[in-house]
């Protein structure tokens, strides 16, 4: 009797294990070997940079805002605005999208603070949210890139190209990618799958890390992507010899930043349409992926959302990438300031 029960139990265990394995395989089937290599390199480099700091010094961070003003004693070049936010409470930490340092410099939430400063934390429902909206739109493009990388079958060759400077008024965020499919027009179901992949990715709640790296290291990370390899020297030239990388989950990409804190800030997401672009870039057709998304904290009724969804289906008029010159997002590295 007992023996039978034991066998049954074991069988059940092994079955559930099998099932779990299968489920996890299906979930993980997206992440490619290449993405894993890139994220591993990113991790090692961030570890190296952290260890190179040496003796830890203290800085005073003067927080201004809700729930109350506070003076925080933080670690120089180690502590990030997110660490400060964690001292102020879970609600503040979870909703803050960007940091404002000394009242003028927009700062990524996971970027270490180099000196004593005053700190404000920005979220989506403030009186002047233009900067936050822009960072949100940029992050959406970045995440869309991750989704494009993961969503296609293995026989389809995907190479991300770039995304233009975010413009909320244009009605959609964009990622341009090279895909080895001739004359592909996605049907409704394919777009739905892309949307749901993006929802799944963002619901993983990945913190979006940022890292400044040298040109050589950037070239090493993107050695299998000829477009990025071509762009990197230009980007570095306009950014003092450094390339800013961002990472969410296993996806690493170049962007001047800043981005929002976490992928779970995204609420409603739609990948609205994909267009084939007319460019002179060699190696295959370039497709423009367009989408629209709203922060989780902003809830919109479905009628209003369908209006902006419909608009996102129209071709976005942002600059089409070509062989000569790089897009604004990559070239124009200006010290990001408010306004």
């Amino acid at each position: 009797m007992n023996f039978n029960l034991l066998i049954q139990k074991q069988l059940f265990c092994s079955l559930t294990k099998c099932y779990n394995q299968k489920a996890s395989q299906r979930l993980l089937s997206g992440t490619t070997e290449e993405a894993k290599r890139q994220s591993e390199l990113f991790f090692l480099e961030s570890k190296r940079q952290k260890e190179a700091i040496g003796r830890i010094e203290k800085i005073n961070v003067n927080y201004v805002g809700v729930p109350e003003n506070a003076l925080l004693l933080m670690n120089k070049n180690l502590s990030t605005p997110f660490d400060c936010a964690k001292h102020l409470g879970e609600v503040v930490a979870n909703r803050s999208a960007l940091a404002l340092i000394n009242g003028e410099t927009i700062w990524h939430m996971h970027r270490p603070i180099p000196e004593s400063c005053s700190l404000e934390l920005l979220h989506y429902n403030i009186t002047q949210p233009a900067v936050v909206n822009k960072a949100f739109w940029r992050t959406c493009s970045f995440i869309l890139g991750a989704v494009i990388n993961n969503a296609f079958k293995e026989n389809v060759h995907v190479q991300l190209h770039s995304f233009p400077s975010p413009n909320v008024r244009s009605g959609s965020f964009i990622y341009d990618a090279q895909i080895s499919l001739e004359d592909w027009t996605p049907n409704e179901n394919e777009l739905k799958v892309l949307s749901s992949e993006m929802v799944k990715f963002s619901q993983q709640g990945y913190q979006i890390r940022s890292l400044d790296v040298s040109v050589d290291f950037a070239l090493l990370i993107f050695k299998n992507n000829e477009h990025k390899t071509r762009q990197i020297p230009n980007i570095a030239a306009s950014n003092g010899g450094k390339v800013t990388l961002f990472k969410a989950g296993d996806h690493v990409d170049i962007s001047k930043g800043p981005m929002i804190t976490n992928t779970n800030h995204l609420g409603r997401i739609t990948v609205a349409n994909v267009f084939k672009l007319n460019t002179d870039i060699p190696g295959g057709p370039i497709y423009r992926f367009q989408g629209v998304a709203l922060p989780r904290s902003i809830i919109l009724n479905h009628v209003a959302y369908s209006i902006i969804e419909e608009r996102a289906k129209k071709m976005n008029s942002a600059r089409i990438p070509c062989l000569q010159g790089v897009s604004e997002e990559e070239s124009g590295y200006i010290k990001p300031t408010i306004g």
Partner: peptide, 22 residues
């Protein structure tokens, strides 16, 4: 409940405004 309507700079209001213009 937070007021998401009166501030026209919020992201959804910007998107809706542009859609209206178009």
């Amino acid at each position: 409940i937070p007021d998401n309507i009166s501030n026209k700079h919020l992201i959804h209001n910007v998107l809706l405004d542009e859609a209206k213009k178009e």
